[in-house]
Structures are given as C-alpha cells and as structure tokens.
Write a protein that binds this DNA or RNA. Sequence first.
DNA 1: TATAGAATTGACGTAAACGTAAAAGGTGCG
DNA 2: CGCACCTTTTACGTTTACGTCAATTCTATA
Lengths: 156, 156
Amino acid sequence: MTMKLVSPGEAAANTNDIPAEAGEEFVRIGEMAKKYGVTLRTLRFYEDKGLLNPHRDGSTRLYTRRDKARLKLILLGRKVGFSLRDVKQMMDLYDPTGTNTKQLRLALDKSEKQLTRLQKQRALIDDAIGELSNSMSIVRQMLVERTAAPQASAAG
Amino acid sequence: MTMKLVSPGEAAANTNDIPAEAGEEFVRIGEMAKKYGVTLRTLRFYEDKGLLNPHRDGSTRLYTRRDKARLKLILLGRKVGFSLRDVKQMMDLYDPTGTNTKQLRLALDKSEKQLTRLQKQRALIDDAIGELSNSMSIVRQMLVERTAAPQASAAG
DNA sequence: TATAGAATTGACGTAAACGTAAAAGGTGCG
DNA sequence: CGCACCTTTTACGTTTACGTCAATTCTATA
C-alpha cells in the first residue's frame, strides 16, 4: 500500500519521484531538510523531542503543511534564543479548537524573560567589547614601545 | 617541615592560621577563591588545565602574587570571551626574560578575531531582539482581540 | 579526644543540539 | 541484476567549564 506522492510520468533526474514543483501535500525528509536549511538529523532529533510529528508511509516520514508551520516556529524560536524545551512547552499548548489564550500568555511571558536575557547579553557583549578594545590598545602600545626603541644597545 | 605562613599568636576566629591581613606571600585555595569570586573547583580545574601552577606545602596548594596575576588574566580573558585554551596559548608564550613580542602579537591577533566574533554576536542579538519584539507585539495584538471582543456571543 | 572546618584526589554528571558512524531496507533506472 | 540514492533505527561522540558527590586526610581548638 504505497501512497502516491505525485503524479507519475514527470520523474526528475535521478532522484525518487519527488518533483521540484513545491506546494505538494507531502514531502519526505530530504526535501524538508533542504527547504528549511536543516539536516536530516535535526528533523529526526526534533521529532524525537516531540516537536514534530510527521505522518508515515510505512517507515518513511511524510511532512505536511502543518509540519512546515511547526518547523518554522521552531526555527524562529531558536533564532530568538529559546531552547527547544521552551519551544515545545509553548507549542504543546496549541489547541486548534480554542482561543489559545494560555498559549499566547505563556509565549508572551517567556518572550519577556527572553528579551531581558538578550538585553543582558547585549550589555555583557558591549562590556566585553569595551574591555577587549581597551586591552588591545594597551597591547598595541606595548608593541610599539618594544619595536621602536632599541637604540640603547647595539642595533641588531 | 611545615612552612609557617604567618606569625603565630594572631590566629583568627576558628579558621586555620590565615589572617585577613591581605598582602601575604601565600594564600591557600579557600582565600584565593573568595578573593576572586571563583570556586575551589574552578581553581583546581584551571590548574588541571595548566593555567595555574601554585606551589605546594605537602599537598596543600599555596598561591602567590604570580598566581593571582595569572588568575586575573584568566578572568579577564573569560570576560572578553576567550576560551581557556586561547588563554593558555597566550599565557604559555610568556617569557619573563624577553620582550614577549610573540606573545603580544598572538594576543593581538586573537583579540582582533574575538572582537569580530563579539560584533557578530551583537548583531545576532540585535536581530533576535528585533524579531522577538516583533513577535511579542503580534501576540499582544492577538490577546487583545481575543480578550476585548467577545460580543458576538453571550458576554461571559 | 571528639569535632568542625579546611584541604586533597578521583571520577561521574550536566547542558544543548545535534554529528557521525553503522547496518540495513526500499526503489527506480540502465 | 545491480548500482546509486534515499531512507530507517540505534547509539555513542562532541564541546566547554565546571558541579557534585565520595572517600579521605590534616589541623587546630574546645
């Protein structure tokens, strides 16, 4: 009982039946990975962590629009610095039948905290940049002194 | 043959012979840790990694001015984001008899790279802050819509 | 002497997000 | 038929900077 993924007859190049037509109902892991710039391992890892739940054709994973939406959310979450645990916590509250108020509130709450963390990090980095620049100018000065004044002894 | 660390007769409170007089020649690990706000584990770890080399009285570590200077450098390095490996690499080049030109050059080189990294990180964080703020305002808007407009059905 | 407070070494645990084999099953094409 | 690819599961490895016991020893003090 193998599901047909696409209409036959248009088999591309040397790969399996998957066309580049995009907008398909199901994609397999390879397509999915390419499309979102992640590795296969990553997709399997996210699934293992309960963040994704692709359908199966036998043992082959089939990703739908829903999975793509979730993956986008995951990637956005990661981009803003959430851990996968956080992302999962938020996504787990999603209820297609409700207003998702709880989910939104949790997301907002976590976001505020994350924003604070990011701002602190920024401050730390600015601090580090300051200290580093400082040290660098000192080192440069030391190098200048060591380079430009060997006239006391024999010039060699 | 236990070395005397301080003049006797002034034993403080309940601790071992160590006075709070500061400016002493040798301090033990506990003092050292407090003074620089690190844990004992950290000091031993740094030693294990070849970053510190305290003297020993039997098995007891004794830290001198030199060790304090090195620790300060380590902490500065960490503050600006160097790995301990980097710090070690730079410190290993230190030669009390020379001009340390090589050391300074390496430090400067690493610093430039680190500065670049820090700036990139800053950009990433700024980006993340932007995205996050963006998402937050959207979520807030969604919450407002869900909260302030239940007039189509019975007002619960 | 009993006890409390330092100190020691050794070694496993942690966090995050995958990387990297390894061994095997399915499939269309020439 | 067999190769070239795609896919699967399992599971250990990686990285960094320590944390956290655990078992033991040393020392001074009450």
